[in-house]
């Protein structure tokens, strides 16, 4: 089924025109699904542009991703007050595993607060400027420095680590 993807192509072109080589990859996957990878240094600028000028003011969720060498964070952004059918734009940035720091986007989209806390819990990514990165879902006695969704932690390792803390 061929669908009209001119709106999707338009937002990709807008981003490419505005940010040039800061856009590492941008593709229209299918109708209403756009994936964009950007340089992590431009995260705030791109998010601001999308939110203020293109009405992508809704963050559906933030996914963490372990790429073995690096970690990645995907912001699933969406147009909010659009009358037509909306596009979900997945904005991906990569960060080094040994220095996992990113600026928070809650100044632009307040709804991102809990999602950033969740990614911090599970992947150990620090969102600089976030008012409260205390554990949201991991228990009080969770061993520090264990980020369960990172690939280096196998199920068994986590089990042993928890048992150690218990003793």
């Amino acid at each position: 089924m061929l669908s009209d993807i001119s709106k999707e192509q338009e937002i990709v072109n807008n981003l490419k025109d505005k940010f040039g080589d800061k856009i590492i990859e941008a593709k229209v996957q299918s109708a209403r699904r756009v994936f964009v990878t950007i340089d992590s240094k431009s995260l705030i600028k791109v998010t601001k542009f999308l939110a203020k000028e293109k009405n992508y003011t809704h963050v559906a969720t933030i996914s963490g991703l372990d790429l073995v060498k690096n970690l990645a964070v995907i912001y699933h952004l969406r147009e909010y007050h659009s009358k037509e059918q909306f596009i979900t734009l997945s904005l991906k940035v990569e960060v080094a595993k040994d220095k996992p720091k990113l600026p928070t986007i809650i100044t632009i989209i307040p709804g991102a607060e809990l999602y950033e806390r969740e990614v911090h819990d599970l992947f150990g990514i620090v969102f600089e400027g976030h008012p409260d990165l205390s554990p949201l879902i991991l228990p009080e006695h969770w061993p520090s420095g264990v980020y369960p969704l990172r690939k280096e932690y196998k199920l068994e390792d986590i089990k042993t680590k928890i048992e150690k803390v218990k003793k």
Binding site: T57, H58, V59, A60, Y80, H81, I109, P110, G111, A112
Partner: peptide
């Protein structure tokens, strides 16, 4: 406004 900002 809050519902939109807080992504309800």
């Amino acid at each position: 406004k809050d519902a939109a900002e807080l992504c309800a």
